[in-house]
Design a protein around this nucleic acid. Structure first.
Length: 105
DNA sequence: GCCATGACGGAGC
DNA sequence: TGCTCCGCCATGG
């Protein structure tokens, strides 16, 4: 897979995550045929324009936590808001219970 | 081409 | 639970 194909594969996988479920970066990489390349998933999502219909908010890290964006926490709150609107709940540390909400394709 | 930098993850302590 | 320490690999300087 070249860089473009890899990104497309990543976006395809993210598109297929159903509402109300989440997937981890490593899981998306694996399903996209890119094992051990979770960091690449992070980059792909980072470069996603806002108007793309890709549900980037349904991707969390392996701990069920929302990964740091460096930016003043703006998009982290947005991600929590979007997930809550789909029925995904958070524990008191702000993490998703993967046992309940992780997507199992 | 070298090097630092990550929307990461697993092992170890 | 919550650190560190590595391996990972595309990107930008």
């Amino acid at each position: 897979l070249n860089a473009y194909e890899a990104y497309d594969a990543i976006y395809d996988v993210v598109q297929s995550i159903p509402p109300g479920r989440v997937a981890t970066y490593g899981q998306v990489a694996e399903l996209a045929g890119l094992p051990r390349r979770a960091r690449m998933v992070g980059r792909a999502l980072r470069e996603l324009p806002d108007e793309s219909g890709v549900p980037w908010h349904r991707v969390v890290n392996s701990q069920g936590a929302i990964s740091d964006r460096g930016e003043c926490g703006e998009s982290e709150r947005e991600q929590r808001r979007l997930l809550r609107a789909e029925g995904v709940s958070f524990d008191r540390r702000g993490r998703v219970a993967l046992v309940r909400f992780q997507w199992d394709p």
